[in-house]
């Protein structure tokens, strides 16, 4: 298994090279000018100043040279300095990343708490009222965009739970309860959207498994309905769900931009959005590197979990 993990991690190298190169090229292609953003229009129009700034930032060199130079620094653990703020990029990312990770984790917990039990219930009570309620909920959850659900939740939270802050952020170690209270609403927003999807996966997977021959065997053994469902059906049914959860966690990592902006959370999403607006290349490049690494690791963990749940899966 460790061989498999090492191979997957090695495979990650070309993927990350591709992603960073694409990012590198794309941000230099989009319209907008870093000098104007840094110095203002008047200074940027002065050719001499302009050339000096570009030279200082290294932006006067050919793009490929810039990329190789940047890679060389990354390998040494140097992520460079922000064009706009001047501080080290790694400091800003390290401040934002834990916040985003916490939110993703809480959101996934929320999504699983919503999706799996409702999905199982919906499958087991197929065609009954609870099934229809769960299916309507999942349809709405999938169809409604997260900014819409998020806005409703901000309003709902503000009206009905005035003592519970809906916006902003406090570090966990400074005020654990305050932190969780603030993280609750954005996680719920994500949790509803992704929970709705997990619900659909779980429901169809459980329905499929309940029709399997080994479920009939379990019943023929005289096991109770509860044991048949939770011991024999659920573990099999969750195998495809784990893969789906992996994919959606990865999606969520990329989708934090909207939620963090709605709930004013200073995470990676906000960081990268601001950096794109300012054409702050070093921040964008480093953030994309971290996010794609996170996505890849999530997928790897999901694959490993599938192997834990399913003894038939062998690492090749």
């Amino acid at each position: 298994m460790s061989r498999y993990i090492i191979r997957r991690l090695l495979l990650l190298v070309p993927v990350l090279l591709g992603v960073t190169f694409l990012t590198f090229a794309l941000i230099r292609v989009i319209p907008g000018d870093i000098v104007t953003n840094m110095m203002g229009v008047t200074a940027a129009n002065n050719a001499e100043t302009r050339a000096k700034v570009l030279r200082e930032l290294g932006l006067d060199r050919p793009m490929l040279e810039q990329y190789v130079w940047w890679l060389g620094r990354i390998v040494q653990g140097d992520f460079g300095y922000s064009f706009i703020h001047g501080g080290p990029v790694i400091d800003r990312i390290m401040r934002a990343l834990p916040i985003t990770l916490e939110m993703c984790l809480l959101s996934m917990v929320m999504a699983l708490l919503i999706g799996v039990p409702l999905g199982v219930l919906s499958a087991v009570r197929r065609g009954r009222p609870i099934d229809y309620i769960a299916r309507v909920f999942s349809l709405l959850g999938v169809a409604a965009p997260s900014f819409f659900i998020g806005t409703l939740i901000v309003i709902f939270g503000a009206i009905h739970f005035p003592n519970m802050p809906t916006l902003g952020y406090v570090p966990f170690f400074q005020d654990p309860l305050g932190n969780l209270a603030r993280m609750f609403w954005p996680s719920l927003t994500f949790g509803i959207g992704i929970g709705a999807i997990i619900l659909r996966y779980t429901r169809s997977s459980v329905l499929e498994v309940l029709g399997e021959d080994y479920i009939r065997t379990a019943r023929a053994k005289g096991l109770s309905r509860f044991k048949v469902i939770f011991v024999h059906a659920l573990r099999n049914a969750l195998i495809p769900v784990i893969t789906a959860v992996g994919v959606w966690t990865a999606f969520m990592i990329g989708g934090t931009v909207l939620i963090e902006n709605i709930f004013a959370i200073p995470g990676v999403g906000r960081l990268v959005l601001g950096a794109i607006q300012n054409r702050d290349y070093p921040i964008i490049q480093a953030t994309v590197l971290f996010l794609s690494f996170g996505v890849a690791i999530t997928m790897l963990v999901a694959d490993l979990l599938v192997a834990v749940a399913d003894p038939r899966v062998k690492f090749a």
Partner: peptide, 23 residues
């Protein structure tokens, strides 16, 4: 349930799919 598996045992056609693959 007390009859199934205790007083009446059943063998099915397809042994490949009749045993739970994850246990």
């Amino acid at each position: 349930r007390a009859v199934r598996g205790r007083q009446i045992g059943m063998i099915f056609q397809d042994p490949i799919s009749s045993l739970n693959p994850v246990y």
